[in-house]
């Protein structure tokens, strides 16, 4: 049985212009100890998927309108708020895009790490601070015994993301959701953070859901990948298969856009996908990628393609691959 199986998860947001269907029957799964990459451009629903899984969508304006989130045999969407709180930070933890603002400026990093350990594992304050120092050591922060008593503003961005990771892993969760953990960081620091996540994953056996728009990171770090576009999972497969033979035109575009995907001569522009993500409020009947797709057919504009399974363990949502 999968550790996590999201089935047909749908989320709507009330906006001034109408109801936006931000997630439309999203399905994805993660096995124990596995890493799943979730890729797509900004606004495609990657972060909302993660937040909805943990029921952290602000409501109103957001609302989960359907689906199931099976985690370790239980449907998280059916749990009481109290039961849900025992899952958050304990069995599933999350790190976010903005290390600079994701830590509370008023408390020491030690207090903030210790807080989850005390809550979920019933440690005393002293034991919890000790555990916090061990965690800082585990994420390679030098002099952890001293730094555990320092405040977030005394750490750099990369260091703060390490603190976030320490906090997320302090309760030894089964699943770590990393929502673009390196987007706000320098390129050199990005590599360090990715290395750290890989290293800790190997050590602890935690499954990882890595949300990113960086195809390079997906290629390096993940076992499977789910490509999202406008609230749909348009393709999902083992990462090697996707890189070797991307089926959905959007996936092909994403791979072509990644610097380093092919040799680019100096002065030559990188590839791009023309157009932008369509409005989620006024969805047409057809495929949402149709307007940007090079292979568009009349049918694409009239009817939403179904999820088809061209090979075992591989799904794609495109009329080109439905036979």
């Amino acid at each position: 049985m999968s550790l996590l199986a999201v089935e047909d998860l749908s989320v709507e947001f009330r906006t001034r212009r109408g109801v936006a269907r931000v997630l439309d029957r999203v399905s994805l799964g993660i096995e124990r100890g596995q890493t799943l990459g979730v890729v797509g451009e900004s606004g495609c629903g990657k972060s909302v998927t993660a937040l909805a899984m943990l029921r952290l969508i602000a409501s109103p304006p957001g609302r989960i309108t359907g689906g199931r989130v099976h985690f370790d045999g239980r449907d998280l969407l059916a749990l009481s708020e109290d039961e849900m709180r025992q899952v958050r930070g304990n069995r599933v933890s999350m790190i976010f895009q903005e290390p600079m603002t994701s830590l509370n400026p008023a408390y020491t990093v030690g207090d903030q790490i210790a807080e989850s350990v005390r809550l979920h594992q019933g440690l005393t304050r002293r034991e919890a601070i000790e555990r916090a120092a061990q965690m800082l050591d585990a994420v390679s922060i030098p002099d952890p015994a001293r730094r555990v008593h320092e405040y977030p503003h005394q750490f750099s961005g990369g260091m703060r993301q390490r603190v976030m990771i320490a906090m997320a892993l302090a309760c030894q969760p089964d699943l770590l959701v990393a929502d673009e953990p390196t987007t706000a960081l320098d390129v050199t620091v990005q590599a360090q953070i990715f290395d750290l996540i890989s290293e800790l994953r190997e050590k602890t056996g935690t499954a990882v859901m890595l949300i990113t728009h960086d195809m390079g990171a997906v290629a390096e770090m993940t076992d499977r990948v789910a490509v999202m576009y406008a609230g749909h999972v348009v393709e999902s497969a083992a990462v090697a298969d996707v890189l070797r033979e991307p089926l959905h035109p959007y996936t092909r575009g994403l791979i072509a856009c990644a610097p380093g995907a092919r040799t680019v001569a100096p002065g030559q522009l990188l590839d791009e996908i023309p157009g932008t993500v369509p409005s989620l409020v006024e969805r047409g009947a057809g495929c949402l990628f149709a307007e940007r797709c090079a292979h568009v057919q009349p049918r694409c504009r009239a009817e939403l393609p179904p999820h088809s399974e061209p090979a075992p363990g591989r799904t794609v949502m495109c009329w080109l691959h439905t036979q």
Partner: peptide
Amino acid sequence: GSDYIRTARAKGLS
């Protein structure tokens, strides 16, 4: 509405 409040909720705090 700030990020660290989201972090606190994601930790499972009441």
